[in-house]
């Protein structure tokens, strides 16, 4: 089992272009769980370890494009605080809820998206933020919105020869926030999550829902209502109820050992209402 430590993306994608079974390893917080639990690494399998590719572990704010470019292997800890937290608070809030400090020191947004769990905290934020995944292969590169890249539970449109190298997140003015429900106060997998991003400049908002469907869901019907309520201060109980109902209809949850479908549907509506309420308060505070 050769382990390769490419030092740049070119080398990595060349390795991925070769035949044969392989695994990509970055933070290890998902892949190593599978290996420890018996998904044995095969004889001829190659491991492509991304830890030495500095490009994947750095981020930059491209002010000309208004885009935050985050390397796919930047660990959660770095996303949860500092400058990124100021530029992109919802991603930071989501990052802070991932696992434990140990997990946040290792796990990455790239891994979260590639794993494609509907409970992925970072994935939910990435969808609400309209993040675009930059994907490289030996054949070239392509840019795919995260919302389109993830196609189902643990399913993505990534080819075996492809690598997510970064995410481009268009920065917006306006409230953004992430909230999730878990049965424990820390180190818990979301049983319902929601991320709201209000783009005041374009007069739109995006609400992404986690853990209530096969993948992260958007709320195309609720979003215009949310925008209206927040930007036009048309909020009242009835309007909020309408949003909650709409969000709950958008949810497609299942029953499992973590929660019932009924509860997940209920909870995601509550989270949506709270995020919208927080957005309204934040706007009022800014205006005073």
């Amino acid at each position: 089992m050769p382990v390769f430590h490419p030092i740049d993306v070119d080398e990595a994608v060349e390795l991925l272009a070769r035949r044969g079974p392989r695994r990509i390893l970055a933070g290890g917080t998902d892949e190593m769980v599978r290996i420890n639990h018996g998904a044995a690494v095969g004889e001829g399998e190659e491991i492509v370890c991304l830890n030495n590719i500095t490009e994947l572990r750095s981020w930059a704010f491209e002010s000309d494009r208004g885009v935050l470019v985050i390397g796919a292997a930047v660990p959660w800890t770095e996303l949860a605080s500092g400058a990124i937290a100021t530029l992109c608070p919802s991603l930071a809030e989501a990052a802070r809820t991932v696992g434990s400090p140990q997990i946040r020191n290792a796990g990455t947004l790239g891994g979260n998206v590639a794993t494609a769990s509907p409970a992925g905290d970072g994935l939910c934020a990435a969808v609400a933020l309209d993040a675009v995944a930059v994907i490289r292969s030996a054949a070239g590169s392509r840019r795919v919105p995260v919302a389109e890249l993830v196609t189902g539970p643990k399913q993505t449109g990534l080819g075996p020869e492809e690598l997510i190298t970064s995410f481009e997140i268009p920065l917006t003015e306006g409230y953004q926030g992430y909230a999730k429900v878990g049965v424990r106060n820390a180190m818990v997998i979301s049983i319902a999550g929601a991320c709201l991003v209000v783009d005041e400049q374009h007069g739109i908002s995006r609400l992404a829902l986690g853990s209530v469907g096969p993948t992260i869901l958007r709320c195309p019907e609720a979003e215009p209502l949310i925008t209206d309520v927040i930007l036009n201060r048309s909020g009242n109980t009835a309007r909020l109820d309408e949003i909650v109902d709409s969000v709950r209809s958008a949810a497609r949850p299942i029953d499992d050992h973590r929660a019932t479908a009924d509860y997940r549907r209920h909870a995601v509506g509550v989270l949506a209402r709270r995020l919208v309420t927080r957005a309204i308060s934040a706007r009022e505070e800014n205006n005073t």
């Binding site: 909230a179 999730k180 429900v181 878990g182 106060n185 709270r274």
Partner: peptide
């Protein structure tokens, strides 16, 4: 956030 139910999930506001 750990002073409220939901903890790090930023789930809850004081009013809830």
């Amino acid at each position: 956030p750990y002073s409220l139910p939901g903890g790090a999930g930023l789930t809850t506001d004081t009013t809830d």
